[in-house]
Design a protein around this nucleic acid. Structure first.
Lengths: 147, 147
DNA sequence: CTATATTATTTCACATCTGAAACAATAGAG
DNA sequence: CTCTATTGTTTCAGATGTGAAATAATATAG
């Protein structure tokens, strides 16, 4: 109890620490296969399901704000992984995967398959469920005020 | 089963998503109280336990590489939260909290107390244990190769 | 003691993120 | 139709992170 208490107090730091490690690990592996970053991999993955979506939908989909997406997509466009195109509504622009984008997406998928598997190694099914519950709750509990 | 399977495949993205939300939330709250960032809060916290440690110990303690710490400590020094001092070994430098650093650390501690509590809201004790196990495993499983 | 290796920190180039402000274009009120 | 509000994207300044290379100082081999 006392121990659990102590650990609870550090939960956020523990979470951060784990995130740092996982991100480095993921980037290391992606660098060796597809050569893209974790952020770019998220874009490739999302676009596979929503090719041609607007920039802000992409932002929403990968959980970043619009200005982050502007830069990310610009760098990926330079790498010829995606392309921006006009839409009917002149304010927005749509993003599409290029052939190369689709190709790398497949490689990325393979990477994450084994990566995610490794993440649950050593955990029982109900422990994995608890983790997933925790992550989902974190996202909700702490959602943007009301607004 | 099939559902769990699907979720497993997205575990890393889910994790990332939760991290983004939590980090924004933490930064938002810290900004309103102590005014420091999450990274700076980690430094304040660590130094409270290891005041006067070397820069690389601090880097190790908060889980960042040395070059990140150089910048972080420099900015914090400019804010008068910490100060660098010479050590016996001329290669290294020690970092100390200033009075203001100690003061803010207390505020930060209070913030994290309620924040961490909020993180476990809605979870049973065994679910929290599973989460902690998962985080610790993530840090280990995925540790720097062998090297 | 000198040449070389190791260790600690910093610098550099650059990716990524954030919030706030600037722009651009459509929508809506009168 | 025109003025104003809203919406979508980009720009800007600045914090944070990474790995690689540069510096600086101690340690060690011969």
């Amino acid at each position: 109890m006392a121990i659990a208490r102590t650990v609870d107090r550090r939960l956020f730091f523990l979470f951060n620490r784990a995130h740092t490690q996982l991100a480095k690990f993921a980037d290391y592996h992606l660098a060796g296969s597809s050569g893209v970053s974790t952020s770019q991999a998220a874009v490739l993955t999302y676009l596979g399901y929503h090719d041609g979506c607007r920039l802000s939908d992409l932002a929403n989909g990968v959980g970043r704000n619009n200005s982050a997406i502007t830069g990310l997509v610009s760098r990926m466009e330079k790498l010829r992984l995606v392309s921006r195109k006009k839409t009917l509504d002149g304010r927005s622009r749509a993003v599409y995967l290029t052939d190369e984008g689709w190709r790398l997406r497949e490689i990325v998928r393979e990477d994450f398959r084994s990566f995610n598997e490794k993440l649950t190694r050593g955990l029982t099914e109900s422990e994995v469920d608890a983790v997933i519950k925790f992550l989902n709750l974190s996202i909700e509990n702490v959602a943007p005020q009301d607004k």
